[in-house]
Structure formats: C-alpha cells, structure tokens
C-alpha cells in the first residue's frame, strides 16, 4: 500500500470529532460496560501508517482514558487499510464501532450484524455520488471504455458495491475494465490527461474539488454519473455492549460538530457534520445492493 493520506486525514478527523465529546458524556460510560469496546477504522486503500498510525491511535486512546472515568484497558482501537484484517479484527472483537464507508457496511452487514449509525454531511449534502471522468474528447460513453484502464481510490472499495451501487449492475468492473487503483486521485487525473490511464472514478467531493483547479477541470468530462446514495460514515456491530453505549456516542458526535473547534476542523475537509440515522433509512440501498428491489 502506498501513502493515502487524504483518506487518513478524514479518519483522524472523525476521531477528533467523535470522541472528545464522547469523553465528556455523563451517565453510563464505556467503563460501566462489562466488556471491552473496540473501534475499527476501516479505510480500504488507506495509507500505511506504521508507527505514525499506532501513535495516533495510542494518542486517541490515551485522551479517551485520561479525560473520562474510562479505564485505558477498557477501550481498544485499530486502523486498517485492508478489508481482510479489518474483518478479522471485528470477528474477534464483536463489541465494535466502525468508521467506514457505505461500501463496507453493505458488504459486511449480515456477517457482523452491522447497524448504520451516522451519515457524513457535506455542504448540505448527505449523499454520495461517483463520477467516471475521461480526458475531454477521448471517450463518449461507458461502452467506449470497455477494456480500458481506469484508476482512482474508489476502486479499493468492495467490488460488489462498485458493480451494484456505483454502476447499477450495468457492468462487472473486474472484467470490464483494467483496474488500476491508486490512493492519489489527483495523480490519476493527471495521468489520464497524459494518456497513461483512460478514465478515473472520483467521489463527489473529489469532483467538486477538481473544479478548483480550472486548468485540469477544463480538460476533463464526465462519461458516467452514479445514482446518489447515503454517505454512511459510522456504524456498529450490534451486541449488548455496543447497544448500551450507542446513544452516548452518537450524542457526542452531533454535539461535537456544533462546537466551534470541531466545526473548523470539519470545514477544512469539506464536512459539515454527522447526521444520525435510523437503520430503516438504508432499506432501499440494501435492497439495491442485494438485488432484491
């Protein structure tokens, strides 16, 4: 894996926003729970953090235990840039809150009894949409891109998610394209403009950010736009222990984004805040993913 710090930052921003508020919650706390609570931060294709990542996790857990009555030994957390070890961690530590994408939720929902908790909101939007872009004039449609090389960090997501949700079952990306995932989407766009790759799959946030680089933006065009879908960011593996502390954590999340400092950090990354949801909100999305709608 290479450095994919953009994703990494979002993860740590999540941590900053979510947990300091949680530390100050009154009433029942994690320390009251009989079992240890775990936090898995899952960013497929994220950076190899090495000691830096360990340090930040330790930093985070230290703050957690220092500012509350929570004992250091009651909480554990780990960051994953690969889905397989993340799944193994959750399998082993079922009392787990997870920061991850809608793709991770859909792919692992039944296995780990995942419950969606919060959407990430950005500039008033609570949905995600993906854009397949090409160099202007090079390809006109999705059909033209068959057998061509596509890049972007979205390609690290679960393949079924990309097929069913991003491309609405129209294609099987694994056989339709030559996939070249990268953690550096801007590099991918530049490579597309020099002809090294044919198309790049961008998130909505990346596409909007590209507009801020007019010299690059004017050279590209969109050949395919995915339907909008909920921008899930936070979920839990449901157990009595996670259920017991869920409301506390969610309350803290929303509260944090209303605080001046939390808001500032969020805005730096184009995120307005978190919006708690009921699990039923995603019923339609689940049906689409499973193909039962």
């Amino acid at each position: 894996m290479t450095h994919k710090k953009n994703c990494f930052i979002t993860i740590w921003m999540f941590l900053l926003l979510v947990f300091p508020g949680f530390f100050h919650q009154n009433g029942a706390s994690v320390s009251a729970a009989a079992e240890k609570i775990h936090f898995a931060i899952v960013f497929p294709g994220g950076p190899d953090t090495g000691p830096e990542g360990d340090k930040i996790i330790t930093q985070f857990l230290d703050i957690l235990t220092r500012q509350t009555k929570i004992k250091r030994a009651d909480v554990a957390g780990q960051y994953f840039n690969d889905i397989a070890p993340a799944r193994a961690y959750i399998q082993k530590n079922r009392n787990c809150f997870i920061m991850g994408s809608i793709g991770f939720y859909l792919a692992n929902r039944t296995t780990y009894n995942l419950v969606p908790l919060s959407l990430v909101t950005s500039e008033g939007k609570r949905t995600e949409q993906y854009y397949l872009i090409v160099k202007k004039g090079s390809y006109k449609s999705l059909a033209d891109l068959k057998g061509k090389k596509i890049s972007g960090n979205v390609l690290y997501e679960d393949a079924k998610f990309i097929n069913n949700m991003v491309f609405e079952n129209k294609i099987n990306v694994g056989s339709y394209f030559v996939m070249q995932p990268t953690a550096r989407p801007l590099s991918a766009v530049r490579k597309m403009n020099t002809g090294t790759v044919d198309a790049v799959l961008l998130t909505g946030m990346q596409y909007e950010a590209l507009k801020q680089i007019p010299t690059t933006f004017q050279k590209i065009e969109v050949v395919y736009k995915s339907p909008e879908m909920p921008r899930l960011g936070f979920m839990m593996a449901e157990t009595p222990a996670t259920r017991g502390v869920k409301d506390e954590i969610l309350g803290a999340m929303v509260k944090m984004t209303s605080l001046e400092e939390g808001k500032k950090v969020c805005n730096n990354f184009g995120i307005s805040g978190f919006e708690n949801i009921q699990p039923e909100t995603l019923n339609e999305t689940i049906a689409k993913y499973t193909g039962s709608n």
Binding site: H3, K4, N6, R184, P185, S187, A209, L210, F269, G270
Partner: peptide, 15 residues
C-alpha cells in the same frame, strides 16, 4: 508534498 494528506483534503502532491 510526499507525506502530507493528499488532495483534495490536504497539500500532498506526488508530482
């Protein structure tokens, strides 16, 4: 530029 958070969130830029 190599190690900073990557675009669009940060100033990281491989090129």
């Amino acid at each position: 530029y190599l190690s900073a958070p990557e675009w669009p969130q940060g100033i990281g830029d491989l090129e």
